[in-house]
């Protein structure tokens, strides 16, 4: 028995409604958050990104920038992973390559997520 209408598929949340829509919903939720975050990000970069090293660090170290920058990068990474996985699932049909790429993208996104938080904290609290 295959398809989404069996006991195993129901447990995994496949098929209609339930957790099968989780990825779809998360993509929309991160998108809605990014509408606000990107608006802040674009305005802030125009106003602050052209300064010298000390000015850029002072901007990043301000509490509002810290919070908003970390939120923007982390939400952006989350949204990017969902989008890239969708693209890979659509165009890469060899199971091994597909799985390898998806795992690689998630590992790399985790690396970037931690690196961005460390970088911002280092600027703000590193002295």
């Amino acid at each position: 028995m295959s398809g989404s209408n069996n006991a195993a598929a129901r447990v995994r949340g496949l098929g209609s409604a339930k957790a099968g829509t989780h990825v779809w919903w998360t993509q929309r939720l991160t998108a809605a958050a990014l509408v606000l975050l990107v608006a802040w990000f674009a305005v802030s970069l125009i106003l602050n990104a052209q300064g010298n090293h000390a000015q850029v660090r002072a901007w990043i170290a301000s509490p509002v920038s810290m919070v908003m920058l970390i939120l923007t990068v982390l939400t952006g990474l989350w949204h990017a992973v969902l989008g890239l996985v969708e693209v890979i699932e659509d165009y890469v049909h060899a199971e091994g390559t597909k799985l390898g790429l998806i795992v690689a993208i998630k590992f790399f996104a985790a690396l970037l997520a931690v690196a961005s938080v460390v970088a911002v904290f280092r600027i703000a609290f590193g002295g």
Binding site: H53, R57, A115, S116, V120, R122, I123, G126
Partner: peptide
């Protein structure tokens, strides 16, 4: 690139 730039700034 943005994360690399943040790391460089730090």
């Amino acid at each position: 690139y943005l994360v690399a730039w943040l790391c460089a700034a730090s």
